[in-house]
């Protein structure tokens, strides 16, 4: 028996009450595309599953005061079909489109992808580069905001405890003249874990041909998705040029320390991959449009 009870709740309040009642023996389930397998393989154990995936108050994608807000039970298919995201936040639309297969995307949710905390989860890599935050409800009635940079503790381990907490919303700010892109390498285009995922978000100053802001998230090169701080600093240090992108990619190469992996290749190969894909993804990102106040189109270096 993988679990004893399966409860589909009608309200958020009901979900939190059940978690409180069972004191650690119940946990939330969203799409379950990862969790069902983990329970079957006894990697996780639980008595009661509380299904929150159909709650309409957790399913939305909206823009408010320069921020994008996403309900945690929004499915990958819904994200991948969002004109708002394709227009303004390409990296997240691309990430959602890369998850599993259509069958998995129709069921799996962005909230589930985050709480499950796999080291290279597609939407997580994008959301780290977007400097996103999550809103979490605690079962004592309190609420807290956690930035993505503090959310992940290790492989499969996030700060959110699904036996007592509910991830409600993901939000991030749109940047002026935002450029973004996801670089993804996998053995095939569907149903394959990424060998490398790179999420890049830039804010450009076209007048001066420089970047206002640069964020690069790479995974898996460590137990949790990693921001490439040195590479980001390099990108801000001078005017945009091909040499600048090459130096930043070199800085990402220096910072990456992936282990030898039967699935993903050896350390030397994976480091080189970080360099090449950082460069390529920077180029692709610069050629996109997005964010707020972007009228003049792409820039080239």
């Amino acid at each position: 028996m993988y679990w004893e009870k399966y409860l589909k709740v009608k309200t958020l309040h009901e979900a939190m009450e059940i978690l409180k009642l069972y004191q650690g023996k119940a946990r939330l389930i969203a799409g379950g595309t990862d969790l069902v397998l983990q329970l079957r393989e006894k990697k996780k154990r639980v008595s009661v599953l509380v299904d929150i995936s159909d709650l309409p108050e957790l399913q939305y994608i909206k823009e408010e005061h320069g921020q994008i807000k996403i309900g945690a039970m929004t499915t990958h298919s819904q994200l991948a079909a969002s004109p708002l995201l394709w227009e303004k936040v390409i990296v997240l639309a691309q990430a959602a489109s890369s998850v599993g297969s259509p069958q998995i995307r129709n069921v799996g949710t962005v909230g589930g992808n985050i709480v499950n905390a796999q080291p290279a989860a597609d939407t997580v890599v994008a959301l780290m580069a977007l400097d996103a935050k999550v809103v979490v409800f605690n079962n004592d009635g309190g609420e807290e905001k956690i930035p993505f940079s503090e959310l992940f503790l290790g492989v499969g381990e996030s700060k959110i405890d699904p036996t007592s907490q509910l991830l409600k919303e993901i939000s991030f700010s749109l940047l002026p003249e935002m450029r973004s892109s996801l670089g993804r390498l996998a053995r095939r285009k569907a149903l394959a874990l990424p060998i490398l995922n790179i999420g890049i978000v830039l804010s450009v100053n076209k007048k001066e041909n420089r970047l206002h802001e640069a964020r690069i998230c790479v995974a898996p090169v460590a137990p949790v998705p990693m921001r490439m701080k040195e590479a980001e600093k390099t990108l801000l240090s001078r005017k945009l040029s091909d040499e600048l992108l090459i130096s930043a990619s070199k800085a990402a190469f220096d910072a990456a320390d992936p282990r030898n992996s039967k699935l993903r290749g050896n350390t030397a190969y994976r480091k080189e991959l970080v360099r090449v894909m950082t460069y390529r993804t920077l180029k692709t990102a610069l050629a996109t449009r997005g964010g707020v106040g972007d009228e003049a189109g792409s820039i080239t270096v």
Binding site: Y6, K8, I29, G32, T33, V36, L37, L49, D51, S53, S77, P102, Q103, I104, N106, V107
Partner: peptide
Amino acid sequence: TVLIDGMPVDSCIYPALK
């Protein structure tokens, strides 16, 4: 694969009570 509310879904990992 079966269709749930018109969408393809993998029924082998889909809890029945869902």
